[in-house]
């Protein structure tokens, strides 16, 4: 069968190539990051790289140890989630369970607009408003701190967590609510005892994806956290994240230098974290749908 004579066969071939290339793309992304990144271990041992705290890529005796950077990422992410999750859940519950539909419709664009603001604009807002405010409220010389990072990043991840949680809450069948209400439970008791537990897998997915979003966010943390590669002892210390390290330094790292390789290894680490978060979320979604 000649391909030119068989547009149907050609079309099927094309769509299949496109779809399967998605698998290849993900594989290639990992492969290239890892392939470049692994070369750092010619200069720094695996153990030192991940567990050491000294990041001095440009000194005459360079050190490539990223523990403080990983911890920076984890702290700012954890802090942002700590602020964002309760607020996002509060919004999600209010909009799906309490508010009249007309109010929910009216407020829906608020979340959508917030989700649509480019991260560099949020970062800019953080830099010009939040950072000076943190400095003056707490009387510290510079507001470029972990705290500023947490505050601004919390705004950034809120829409992700809110939207997915709201979807999860809305997909709880009406009959559950009616059964509980028929027993004389108040609305809040119904939400608390029936709706929330039923939506829990979806809410967990929301928090997981929020975590992935927060740890992968670049511009916001680059602009407001001060970028010092130290393990912070308080929220008023500056920190440096994995993403910000790559963004700030890749421009100066010579192609093929140990510094270049180290930054790729950080990106490979980010890839692995994001991959695990996503896989966990997918697993939860699959399991959730099995019980539905």
């Amino acid at each position: 069968m000649k391909i030119g004579k068989d547009p149907d066969g050609l079309a099927e071939l094309l769509v299949k190539i496109s779809a399967y290339s998605m698998i290849l793309v993900v594989f290639f992304i990992f492969f290239f990051l890892f392939f470049e990144g692994i070369k750092i271990f010619n200069f720094e041992s695996v153990q030192h790289f991940f567990l050491g705290q000294s990041w001095q890529p440009t000194s005459s005796n360079p050190r490539f140890e990223i523990a403080s950077i990983i911890i920076g990422s984890l702290f700012v992410t954890a802090g942002a989630l700590l602020l964002s999750v309760p607020v996002a859940l509060g919004c999600a519950i209010y909009l799906s369970e309490v508010a009249p539909p007309s109010l929910s419709e009216l407020l829906k664009p608020v979340i959508e607009i917030l989700a649509g603001i480019p991260s560099v604009v949020i970062g800019f807002f953080g830099l010009t408003v939040v950072v000076p405010a943190v400095a003056s409220i707490f009387g510290i010389p510079s507001g470029l701190t972990l705290l500023s990072g947490i505050l601004v990043l919390a705004i950034m991840v809120l829409p992700t967590i809110e939207t997915i949680s709201e979807d999860a809450l809305r997909s709880v069948p009406r009959s559950y609510r009616e059964a509980s209400a028929a027993l004389g439970a108040t609305d809040w008791e119904t939400i608390h005892k029936v709706v929330l537990p039923a939506a829990m897998p979806g809410i967990t997915v929301a928090i997981l994806l929020g975590f992935g979003r927060a740890i992968g966010e670049t511009m916001v943390v680059l602009m407001v956290t001060g970028n010092a590669a130290i393990i912070p002892t308080s929220v008023f210390d500056p920190i440096r994240t994995m993403t910000a390290t790559i963004a700030a330094e890749m421009g100066e790292a010579p192609f093929g230098s140990p510094h270049y390789f180290a930054l790729f290894m950080i990106a490979a680490t980010l890839f692995v974290i994001s991959f695990m978060v996503n896989s966990a979320a997918n697993l939860l979604i699959k399991r959730g749908s099995r019980y539905a």
Partner: peptide
């Protein structure tokens, strides 16, 4: 299911990782 999980992973990858992949490739 492989294609689907590839797409969802692509959607979740940090944007800086795309930047680095673009640089390398």
């Amino acid at each position: 299911s492989l294609v689907n999980s590839a797409i969802s992973n692509l959607a979740g990858l940090p944007s800086i990782v795309f930047g680095l992949f673009g640089l390398a490739v």
